[in-house]
Structure formats: structure tokens, C-alpha cells
């Protein structure tokens, strides 16, 4: 990190204190900017915050909303938990998955049990969710 000013990760977290408490907010910055957590970005973050890379990965991999692959579009998370299941979430998941493939993930309860079934498209919530509603949101939303 000889020339830190050109490090894209450094500019992303410029305003955050260089402490371990900035790790979770910093991970969100990376995800919002890059749509995913890249290995080299995690290593850069480790050096910037002074947290061992293994521990950065340990934290990053704990959370369900962070993806570690390389999505080209916003990931789609469909709640298939108890209440959404009563309201056709399994069929919704199968339908959307048939179109959008690997971008679609099953999610635990999203806290929208009053308007089931629920889905999270990138950072946007759709509830009740239909295949059309999810498609519209995926097209509208940029990469996170």
C-alpha cells in the first residue's frame, strides 16, 4: 500500500475512523460500490483498519446480506419462511428462479409478515411480491 491515495477501497471509506468499529459500515460501502465483496478488497480493508484478513473474512462471511460471488445485477432475496410460505412464496421463488437463475436466493423472515410474500431486490423491498414486481424492480435498480 505504498501509494494509498490510489487505493479505491481507501477512498470509499475515507470518512470512516480507522478503527475496527468501522468494519461493518466499511463492508457495506464495498457491497454498495462493488455489488459484492471481492477478495482483494477485503485484504485492502484488513490493512486499512488494522484487522487481520482472516478476521475480516470471518466477519464478512457471517452476514447473509453480503455476497461473495460476482453478481452482475442486484441479488434477489425471496422470503420463504413460515408466513410467506403460507402465501405462495415457494411458487414465487420457483417462478423467479426459472427466469433469473443464480441471482435468486431464499431468505429467512424479512419482517414483512403483514404483506406477504416479501422480497428484497438489492436494497429495495417489495411486499407483497409478484414475479412482475420483482422483475420491474430488478430492471430499475442499479447495482446496489
Amino acid at each position: 500500500m505504498a501509494n494509498g491515495t490510489h487505493n479505491p477501497v481507501e477512498s470509499l471509506i475515507e470518512d470512516l475512523p480507522r478503527t475496527r468499529a468501522s468494519l461493518l459500515p466499511a463492508l457495506w460501502r464495498l457491497v454498495e460500490h462493488e455489488g459484492t465483496l471481492k477478495r482483494e478488497s477485503l485484504v485492502a480493508l484488513s490493512e486499512l483498519l488494522g484487522v487481520p484478513a482472516a478476521e475480516v473474512y470471518g466477519v464478512a462471511s457471517f452476514y447473509a446480506l453480503f455476497s461473495h460471488d460476482v453478481p452482475s445485477e442486484s441479488p434477489i432475496r425471496i422470503c420463504t419462511d413460515v408466513i410467506c410460505h403460507l402465501y405462495g412464496a415457494d411458487a414465487l421463488y420457483a417462478q423467479v428462479r426459472a427466469v433469473a437463475g443464480g441471482l435468486v436466493h431464499e431468505s429467512p423472515c424479512l419482517g414483512r409478515c403483514d404483506t406477504p410474500p416479501a422480497a428484497l431486490v438489492g436494497r429495495s423491498v417489495v411486499a407483497p411480491a409478484s414475479p412482475e414486481g420483482i422483475r420491474r424492480l430488478s430492471q430499475e435498480s442499479q447495482l446496489w
Binding site: A21, L24, G58, V59, F62, Y63, L65, F66, P108
Partner: peptide, 25 residues
């Protein structure tokens, strides 16, 4: 203001503390 990363257990008070501190929740 801290935004959770999607983990039910982070709502447990001591796990939440770890999460804010930048540790595994």
C-alpha cells in the same frame, strides 16, 4: 447509526455489541 448485515443472532444484546465492535456477532 449501524446497519445490520443480515443475521438474526445480531439482535441478541451481546452479539449486537460484537457486531458494532466489528467482530463476528
Amino acid at each position: 447509526l449501524y446497519r445490520g448485515g443480515g443475521a438474526y443472532i445480531a439482535g441478541e444484546e451481546t452479539a449486537l455489541i460484537n457486531s458494532i465492535e466489528g467482530k463476528r456477532p
